[in-house]
Protein backbone atom coordinates (compact mmCIF):
# COMPACT_ATOMS: atom_id res chain seq x y z
CA UNK A 1 0.00 0.00 0.00
CA UNK A 2 1.38 3.39 -0.90
CA UNK A 3 0.36 5.70 1.92
CA UNK A 4 2.57 8.56 0.64
CA UNK A 5 0.40 9.21 -2.38
CA UNK A 6 -2.95 9.93 -0.81
CA UNK A 7 -3.03 13.46 -2.33
CA UNK A 8 -1.92 12.62 -5.87
CA UNK A 9 -3.44 9.09 -6.16
CA UNK A 10 -5.25 8.07 -9.33
CA UNK A 11 -7.42 5.52 -7.59
CA UNK A 12 -8.16 5.19 -3.91
CA UNK A 13 -10.34 2.64 -2.16
CA UNK A 14 -11.19 3.58 1.39
CA UNK A 15 -12.42 0.87 3.74
CA UNK A 16 -14.51 -0.81 1.08
CA UNK A 17 -16.76 -3.71 2.01
CA UNK A 18 -18.97 -5.67 -0.30
CA UNK A 19 -21.00 -8.83 -0.41
CA UNK A 20 -23.96 -10.52 -2.03
CA UNK A 21 -27.27 -11.36 -0.50
CA UNK A 22 -28.46 -14.89 -0.98
CA UNK A 23 -31.85 -16.34 -0.15
CA UNK A 24 -31.33 -16.27 3.58
CA UNK A 25 -27.80 -15.10 4.29
CA UNK A 26 -25.36 -12.47 3.10
CA UNK A 27 -21.95 -13.57 1.81
CA UNK A 28 -19.20 -11.12 2.54
CA UNK A 29 -16.63 -10.79 -0.28
CA UNK A 30 -14.65 -7.69 0.62
CA UNK A 31 -14.12 -6.46 4.16
CA UNK A 32 -12.55 -3.08 4.87
CA UNK A 33 -10.38 -3.04 1.77
CA UNK A 34 -8.22 0.05 1.23
CA UNK A 35 -5.93 0.58 -1.74
CA UNK A 36 -4.23 3.46 -3.52
CA UNK A 37 -2.85 3.47 -7.03
CA UNK A 38 -0.77 6.25 -8.55
CA UNK A 39 -0.61 7.27 -12.19
CA UNK A 40 1.61 4.85 -14.09
CA UNK A 41 1.76 2.42 -11.18
CA UNK A 42 1.42 -1.30 -11.83
CA UNK A 43 -0.36 -3.33 -9.23
CA UNK A 44 -1.08 -7.05 -9.25
CA UNK A 45 -3.98 -8.50 -7.33
CA UNK A 46 -3.33 -12.09 -6.30
CA UNK A 47 -5.74 -14.54 -4.85
CA UNK A 48 -7.27 -17.95 -5.39
CA UNK A 49 -10.42 -18.42 -7.45
CA UNK A 50 -13.43 -17.07 -5.63
CA UNK A 51 -11.38 -14.82 -3.37
CA UNK A 52 -13.15 -11.70 -4.67
CA UNK A 53 -10.58 -10.34 -7.16
CA UNK A 54 -13.18 -9.69 -9.87
CA UNK A 55 -15.52 -8.06 -7.37
CA UNK A 56 -12.73 -5.77 -6.21
CA UNK A 57 -11.97 -4.81 -9.82
CA UNK A 58 -15.66 -4.17 -10.48
CA UNK A 59 -15.95 -1.97 -7.41
CA UNK A 60 -12.67 -0.17 -8.19
CA UNK A 61 -13.64 0.61 -11.77
CA UNK A 62 -17.06 2.00 -10.96
CA UNK A 63 -19.02 -0.99 -12.19
CA UNK A 64 -20.50 -2.11 -8.90
CA UNK A 65 -21.27 0.12 -5.92
CA UNK A 66 -19.75 -1.26 -2.68
CA UNK A 67 -21.88 -1.96 0.36
CA UNK A 68 -19.68 0.32 2.42
CA UNK A 69 -16.62 2.53 1.97
CA UNK A 70 -15.60 4.97 -0.73
CA UNK A 71 -13.87 4.71 -4.08
CA UNK A 72 -12.11 7.85 -5.37
CA UNK A 73 -10.88 8.16 -8.94
CA UNK A 74 -9.06 11.31 -10.02
CA UNK A 75 -10.00 12.67 -6.63
CA UNK A 76 -13.72 12.24 -7.27
CA UNK A 77 -15.95 10.01 -5.23
CA UNK A 78 -16.97 7.53 -7.94
CA UNK A 79 -20.19 6.36 -6.35
CA UNK A 80 -21.30 9.88 -5.49
CA UNK A 81 -21.61 10.36 -9.24
CA UNK A 82 -24.70 9.14 -11.04
CA UNK A 83 -24.34 6.12 -13.26
CA UNK A 84 -24.12 8.16 -16.46
CA UNK A 85 -21.26 10.30 -15.14
CA UNK A 86 -19.51 7.20 -13.88
CA UNK A 87 -19.88 5.64 -17.32
CA UNK A 88 -18.50 8.79 -18.96
CA UNK A 89 -15.49 8.65 -16.64
CA UNK A 90 -14.85 5.02 -17.59
CA UNK A 91 -15.10 5.78 -21.27
CA UNK A 92 -12.67 8.68 -20.93
CA UNK A 93 -10.03 7.22 -18.63
CA UNK A 94 -10.36 3.47 -18.17
CA UNK A 95 -9.51 0.47 -20.30
CA UNK A 96 -10.55 -3.13 -19.68
CA UNK A 97 -9.10 -6.51 -20.56
CA UNK A 98 -11.20 -9.50 -19.59
CA UNK A 99 -10.49 -13.14 -18.99
CA UNK A 100 -13.23 -14.02 -21.49
CA UNK A 101 -11.76 -11.57 -24.01
CA UNK A 102 -15.20 -10.26 -25.12
CA UNK A 103 -14.37 -9.63 -28.76
CA UNK A 104 -17.26 -9.25 -31.08
CA UNK A 105 -17.39 -12.19 -33.48
CA UNK A 106 -19.30 -10.33 -36.18
CA UNK A 107 -16.68 -7.59 -36.51
CA UNK A 108 -13.16 -7.91 -37.84
CA UNK A 109 -10.16 -7.21 -35.65
CA UNK A 110 -9.78 -3.55 -36.67
CA UNK A 111 -13.49 -2.86 -36.17
CA UNK A 112 -13.34 -4.46 -32.74
CA UNK A 113 -10.56 -2.09 -31.72
CA UNK A 114 -12.24 0.90 -33.33
CA UNK A 115 -15.63 0.25 -31.70
CA UNK A 116 -15.14 1.96 -28.27
CA UNK A 117 -13.21 4.81 -29.94
CA UNK A 118 -16.15 5.37 -32.27
CA UNK A 119 -18.48 5.55 -29.29
CA UNK A 120 -16.17 8.04 -27.62
CA UNK A 121 -16.34 10.11 -30.80
CA UNK A 122 -12.58 10.13 -31.41
CA UNK A 123 -11.95 11.66 -34.83
CA UNK A 124 -8.77 9.64 -35.38
CA UNK A 125 -10.36 6.38 -34.26
CA UNK A 126 -9.19 4.30 -37.21
CA UNK A 127 -5.67 5.60 -37.12
CA UNK A 128 -5.38 4.88 -33.42
CA UNK A 129 -6.91 1.46 -33.82
CA UNK A 130 -4.31 0.59 -36.49
CA UNK A 131 -1.54 1.99 -34.33
CA UNK A 132 -2.69 -0.13 -31.38
CA UNK A 133 -2.79 -3.25 -33.54
CA UNK A 134 0.69 -2.43 -34.79
CA UNK A 135 1.82 -2.20 -31.19
CA UNK A 136 0.54 -5.70 -30.39
CA UNK A 137 1.92 -7.11 -33.65
CA UNK A 138 -1.41 -7.81 -35.32
CA UNK A 139 -1.55 -5.06 -37.93
CA UNK A 140 -1.49 -7.67 -40.71
CA UNK A 141 -4.49 -9.42 -39.34
CA UNK A 142 -6.64 -6.29 -39.05
CA UNK A 143 -9.28 -7.55 -41.45
CA UNK A 144 -9.86 -11.05 -40.15
CA UNK A 145 -12.61 -12.03 -37.77
CA UNK A 146 -11.69 -12.99 -34.17
CA UNK A 147 -12.71 -16.62 -34.79
CA UNK A 148 -9.75 -16.95 -37.18
CA UNK A 149 -7.29 -16.00 -34.42
CA UNK A 150 -5.78 -18.14 -31.67
CA UNK A 151 -6.69 -17.48 -28.03
CA UNK A 152 -3.42 -15.59 -27.49
CA UNK A 153 -3.97 -13.43 -30.57
CA UNK A 154 -7.51 -12.67 -29.47
CA UNK A 155 -6.27 -11.51 -26.09
CA UNK A 156 -3.69 -9.31 -27.84
CA UNK A 157 -6.51 -7.71 -29.78
CA UNK A 158 -8.26 -7.07 -26.47
CA UNK A 159 -5.07 -5.46 -25.14
CA UNK A 160 -4.86 -3.30 -28.28
CA UNK A 161 -8.49 -2.32 -27.83
CA UNK A 162 -7.85 -1.25 -24.25
CA UNK A 163 -4.66 0.70 -25.03
CA UNK A 164 -6.16 2.37 -28.11
CA UNK A 165 -8.33 4.31 -25.67
CA UNK A 166 -5.14 5.73 -24.04
CA UNK A 167 -6.57 5.16 -20.58
CA UNK A 168 -5.11 6.44 -17.33
CA UNK A 169 -5.98 3.13 -15.71
CA UNK A 170 -6.18 -0.29 -17.32
CA UNK A 171 -8.13 -2.89 -15.41
CA UNK A 172 -7.38 -6.49 -16.38
CA UNK A 173 -9.11 -9.49 -14.89
CA UNK A 174 -7.08 -12.71 -15.28
CA UNK A 175 -5.99 -11.71 -18.80
CA UNK A 176 -3.79 -14.80 -19.18
CA UNK A 177 -5.90 -17.38 -17.42
CA UNK A 178 -7.08 -19.09 -20.58
CA UNK A 179 -3.71 -19.00 -22.35
CA UNK A 180 -0.76 -21.38 -22.41
CA UNK A 181 2.50 -20.36 -20.78
CA UNK A 182 4.08 -18.89 -23.95
CA UNK A 183 1.03 -16.85 -24.97
CA UNK A 184 0.43 -15.81 -21.39
CA UNK A 185 3.92 -14.40 -21.09
CA UNK A 186 3.58 -12.53 -24.39
CA UNK A 187 0.27 -10.95 -23.44
CA UNK A 188 1.59 -10.06 -19.99
CA UNK A 189 4.72 -8.44 -21.47
CA UNK A 190 2.54 -6.45 -23.82
CA UNK A 191 0.35 -5.23 -21.00
CA UNK A 192 3.20 -4.18 -18.76
CA UNK A 193 5.37 -2.89 -21.60
CA UNK A 194 2.64 -0.73 -23.13
CA UNK A 195 1.64 0.41 -19.67
CA UNK A 196 5.15 1.49 -18.88
CA UNK A 197 5.63 3.09 -22.30
CA UNK A 198 2.41 5.09 -22.12
CA UNK A 199 2.36 5.81 -18.43
CA UNK A 200 -0.85 3.86 -17.91
CA UNK A 201 -1.59 2.57 -14.45
CA UNK A 202 -2.38 -1.16 -14.33
CA UNK A 203 -4.57 -3.00 -11.90
CA UNK A 204 -4.34 -6.67 -12.85
CA UNK A 205 -6.01 -9.56 -11.15
CA UNK A 206 -4.12 -12.82 -11.59
CA UNK A 207 -3.43 -16.08 -9.82
CA UNK A 208 -0.07 -16.47 -11.57
CA UNK A 209 2.53 -15.49 -8.97
CA UNK A 210 5.38 -15.66 -11.49
CA UNK A 211 3.82 -13.06 -13.80
CA UNK A 212 2.89 -10.84 -10.88
CA UNK A 213 6.55 -10.36 -9.95
CA UNK A 214 6.77 -7.80 -12.80
CA UNK A 215 4.48 -5.46 -10.89
CA UNK A 216 5.94 -3.05 -8.44
CA UNK A 217 2.97 -3.48 -6.11
CA UNK A 218 1.38 -6.79 -5.29
CA UNK A 219 -1.66 -7.37 -3.16
CA UNK A 220 -3.16 -10.59 -1.96
CA UNK A 221 -6.85 -10.95 -1.31
CA UNK A 222 -7.72 -13.57 1.30
CA UNK A 223 -10.92 -13.98 3.25
CA UNK A 224 -12.15 -10.64 1.94
CA UNK A 225 -9.16 -8.74 3.29
CA UNK A 226 -6.35 -7.16 1.25
CA UNK A 227 -2.74 -7.28 2.26
CA UNK A 228 0.58 -6.65 0.60
CA UNK A 229 2.00 -9.79 -0.99
Amino acid sequence: MNAACDRCGLLRLEDVSHGYSGNEETASILEGVSLTLERGERAALLGVSGSGKTTLLAVASGLEPPRAGRVRFLDRDLYALDENRRAALRLAHLGFVFQDIQLFPLLDVLENVRLPLAFRGDADAEERAREALEAVGLARRARVRPSALSGGEQQRVAVARAFALRPLLLVADEPTARLDRGHARRVWDLLTGLGRERGTALLVATHDEALATDCATRYRLEGGRLRNA
Partner: peptide, 20 residues
Amino acid sequence: RRLAPVAAYLVAQGVDRARL
Protein backbone atom coordinates in the same frame (compact mmCIF):
# COMPACT_ATOMS: atom_id res chain seq x y z
CA ARG B 1 -27.36 -13.07 -28.30
CA ARG B 2 -24.82 -12.22 -30.98
CA LEU B 3 -24.71 -8.62 -29.84
CA ALA B 4 -24.55 -9.47 -26.14
CA PRO B 5 -20.76 -9.68 -25.74
CA VAL B 6 -20.19 -6.33 -27.37
CA ALA B 7 -23.02 -4.79 -25.37
CA ALA B 8 -21.56 -6.13 -22.15
CA TYR B 9 -18.14 -4.80 -23.05
CA LEU B 10 -19.39 -1.39 -24.13
CA VAL B 11 -21.51 -0.91 -21.02
CA ALA B 12 -18.53 -1.87 -18.86
CA GLN B 13 -16.29 0.42 -20.85
CA GLY B 14 -18.58 3.31 -20.06
CA VAL B 15 -20.78 3.79 -23.10
CA ASP B 16 -24.00 5.46 -22.00
CA ARG B 17 -26.78 2.85 -21.79
CA ALA B 18 -29.45 4.96 -23.41
CA ARG B 19 -27.11 5.89 -26.20
CA LEU B 20 -26.20 2.25 -26.69
